[in-house]
Design a protein around this nucleic acid. Structure first.
Length: 410
RNA sequence: GCAAGGGUGGUCGAGCGGUUAAUGGCAUCGGGCUGUAAACCCGACGGAGUAAUAUCCUACGUAGGUUCAAAUCCUACCCCUUGCA
């Protein structure tokens, strides 16, 4: 049976899986880190760098932000988010669900959806599963997320249960609307499979043979469900069952790293990931630090996204082998070393900590760009090493080594 | 030379008799950032001392004076800015 995406495990070690995810627009090796490009741009980083040196295969976009500006009408008129932005590889669009959580004082929540006040000008806007699906069809992403509600990490059991049940109903409504939109041909990113729009990585001999065995794709969008339940394991299980019952192309763990203790996050992943469908990709939303990624892969997660590399990059914090480094610190004023001597990225090859500190302190735009670039390289390289370790059956060793090198608050 | 206005902590600048080690901005130093309302937010910022308080010390151009009390009022001097010679 033809599907919009295809994912196959090519190696496994314990719960950790290495796989190949194919969408209509790119071949993505998992575990994968997806840089966040909320407003149709990964802040501070040109697509040229993401494509060439960093070799990101998939990035995020955000329904809520693009809905307010430039609006789906503009993006549809420009041929969808790929054509509009010129990003040719895969896109995953978040549904606006997270904004239901993070813009809590600008919204009114009800069964039908959420009334938002635009954070730009206060205009009242109504977002619902149906509206979110319409916007994501206009954006034309490869992976569409259901519209969910994300309770606080420390929410009590009754609040969490009510929230989870609404998320389940919203998931069903999302899927119904999603199917309708696909049938109506409103997805701007549709690619005729006969035209073979799929992008393959270059110089990947092993991958070529693996791809040959894979099924062809429908050219349509795929849809991921989201499991909620905060830190309550029985609710997590219930949410998982209800989500799987509806049936999606992949499954996401939502509602982590939203204020709960770190131990709770690992506990939930430990419990949940192994129970999730084995033949579908598992996506841990919004996580996290490099350490979080390694730990979550160890527990069976395949996909990640997080704003940390770009946000921290813009605010002077660099991720390095030993953890984090704050480029503002006076100790780096005359430090001629690169951010991370083990990092092969073009920033580390060329620029010193002293220079990066100077341009940061001087408020030069390039500081944000350079540190964001390095941070993305660090995240993407970490995931590449993780994949290679799993394929070589040495992930346990890799993880131990990785964690032992952390000395700061990584 | 005359007239007017000024000299405040790293810096710019408020304060113009007591609650003022002295508002605020900037700079500096430190911390934070996890499906991006974030090129952002928070804290420290005369010195000594304490785990933290307490407590000392030194400070509003310089030197005197008035007053219970002065960055704030008075006098002299030094310097700066502007205008007139």
């Amino acid at each position: 049976m033809e599907q919009p995406i295809d994912w196959q495990v090519i190696a496994q070690e314990g719960e950790a899986r290495a796989g190949i995810l194919r969408t209509r627009r790119s071949v993505i090796e998992t575990p994968v880190f997806m840089p966040v490009g909320t407003q149709g741009t990964v802040k501070g980083v040109r697509y040229e760098w993401l494509e060439d040196e960093l070799d990101a295969r998939i990035i995020l976009g955000n329904t809520y932000h693009l809905w307010l500006r430039p609006t789906p009408e503009v993006i549809r008129a420009c041929g969808g988010l790929h054509k509009f932005s010129t990003w040719k590889r895969s896109l995953l669009t978040d549904s606006g669900g997270f904004q239901v959580f993070s813009l809590t004082n600008l919204r009114k929540l009800s069964e039908s959806g959420v009334e938002f006040q635009s954070h730009l000008d206060g205009t009242k806007m109504f977002l619902s599963p149906e509206v979110s699906m319409e916007i994501q069809a206009a954006l034309g992403s490869e992976i569409v997320m259901v519209f969910d509600e994300c309770p606080k990490g420390d929410a009590d059991i009754e609040t969490t249960r009510k929230s989870l049940e609404m998320t389940a109903r919203w998931a069903k409504r999302s899927k119904d609307k999603f199917i309708e939109l696909q049938e109506q041909g409103l997805d701007t990113g549709f690619l005729n499979p006969m035209e073979n729009g799929e992008w393959k990585p270059e110089n990947k001999e092993n991958l070529e043979s693996e791809i040959l065995n894979l099924k062809s794709l429908t050219g349509q969008q795929s849809l991921f469900g989201i499991i909620q339940g905060a830190g309550h394991l029985d609710l997590r299980r219930e949410s998982l069952e209800r989500t799987v019952e509806i049936g999606f192309d992949g499954y996401a763990i939502g509602g982590l790293s939203v204020g709960e203790e770190k131990s709770v996050m690992y506990e939930v992943i430990d419990f949940l990931a192994p129970q999730m469908p084995k033949d579908k990709p598992r996506y841990l939303m919004g996580v996290g630090t490099p350490q979080d990624l390694v730990e979550a892969v160890f527990r069976g997660v395949d996909m990640f996204d997080c704003v940390m590399p770009t946000r921290n990059g813009r605010t002077g914090s660099a991720f390095v082998t030993s953890g984090k480094l704050n480029i503002r610190n006076a100790q780096f004023a005359k430090d001629t070393n690169p951010l991370d001597e083990n990092c092969p990225c073009s920033v580390c090859k060329r620029y010193s900590r002293a220079y990066l500190r100077h341009v940061y302190q001087a408020n030069e735009m390039i500081a944000a760009t350079l540190i964001s670039h390095h941070n993305l390289a660090f995240f993407l390289n970490t995931m590449k090493q993780v994949r290679e370790a799993i394929k070589a059956g040495k992930f346990g060793e890799y993880r131990r080594d990785f964690l032992s090198k952390l000395s700061d608050n990584g």
